[in-house]
Write a protein that binds this DNA or RNA. Structure first.
Lengths: 134, 134
DNA sequence: TATAGTGTACTAGTTTACTAATACAGTCAA
DNA sequence: TTGACTGTATTAGTAAACTAGTACACTATA
């Protein structure tokens, strides 16, 4: 694991919280980081804000940040190195992840549009998807 | 609210639990009842199993059944009458609900097939839908 | 009217999910 | 080597979600 270069884009990346949304904090962090990847705001090798930076910035506990980063590490999106920091994974897996994610958003966007045209809400879609799980 | 007739189909309707699925019991009841409506196993006016029948049948607490039925009542799917029982709502709302539901399942089924063809899991779809909410 | 069966309401207990506090261990530069 | 910074791990606290226990109120029938 070589240390990634600090790109200008990475320096501008910051998390934001919406405490009214009801979405758990750690989940928001995960979502935002994946979105940053999907929109090329972050790329392989970039260092992401440290656990403590994020915690101070957002006035949350470091362990909440850890939770998000750990999940992303398990998914192969992030690579963390104790004492050094956390980076966007360099392996082609992460690139595939980005494409995978981008295409998924495309598909889902089409779905939502199509269903919305017939009067179905996002919530209804989600519930129906849940039922498909059986 | 006139008392619905007991159709043969309604007598055959029973809930089943999958305790391994991790889906809360009350949610399973909701899902199964909606599915029974969507597949015409139950129709407007049918009486559904009583709170206590379901509780005894599935070895759960009556209040868990109540929770499911109450949510369905709020959604206009069920009509409950204290001392009498619980019925599929007679209003055209419930019929619209059935058509609405059936079409939704159709749409979602197509979505899942299409996305599955590209290697996306149900879980991924659901997560991507969540992100659409922003 | 009495009884059996119905849903309703309230409280309580348990589990799960989420977040925090804190100490430990590793890295890197001076 | 030291100090600052890094992630890691463990425990604990809180809130939310889920389920249960139990009594009350209503309905229908004999």
């Amino acid at each position: 694991m070589v240390r990634g270069t600090q790109s200008a884009a990475a320096q501008l990346f910051r998390f934001r919280l919406d405490l009214q949304s009801g979405v758990p904090v750690y989940r928001q962090l995960i979502d935002q980081l994946l979105a940053a990847l999907a929109t090329c705001q972050l790329k392989a090798g970039d260092q992401v804000p440290t656990v403590r930076q994020v915690a101070v910035d957002l006035a949350i506990n470091p362990n909440t940040v850890v939770r998000a980063y750990k999940e992303l590490e398990i998914r192969g999106v992030l690579a963390t190195q104790q004492g050094t920091g956390t980076f966007i994974a360099e392996v082609s897996l992460s690139r595939d992840e980005v494409e995978h994610k981008r295409r998924l958003h495309q598909l889902v966007g089409e779905m939502v549009a199509r269903a919305g045209g017939e009067g179905y809400s996002l919530k209804e879609l989600m519930e129906a998807l849940k039922e498909q799980r059986r």
